[in-house]
């Protein structure tokens, strides 16, 4: 089943680096997933988070407020 990955962030440098790390991990490991960047604040607030960036996998918030390492993301996606 394809994973639905969303990265929530209003466009700060940290959010950008989260996006690129996630995309890299997905590509390098041939993970079947869609990566979507959510920048709309009203959309972001639906996930009830207070710190960005946040990583959402299949509608579940897994990481918030920090940029995770590649290994951490890989562990979450497997």
């Amino acid at each position: 089943m394809s994973l639905a990955i969303k990265i929530l962030g209003t466009g700060c440098p940290k959010c950008q680096s989260m996006v690129s790390i996630v995309q890299k991990v997905v590509k390098e490991n041939n993970i079947d997933a869609t990566v979507e960047k959510v920048e709309d604040i009203m959309e972001i607030m639906k996930y009830n988070i207070m710190t960005t960036p946040a990583l959402v996998v299949n509608n579940e918030v897994t990481i918030k407020g920090r940029v995770p390492s590649g290994e951490e993301i890989l562990a979450l996606l497997n």
Partner: peptide
């Protein structure tokens, strides 16, 4: 604090 979190923080509070 990261200024980009100020809006989500505000709404959250």
């Amino acid at each position: 604090f990261c200024s980009c979190s100020s809006v989500p923080l505000f709404i959250g509070f």
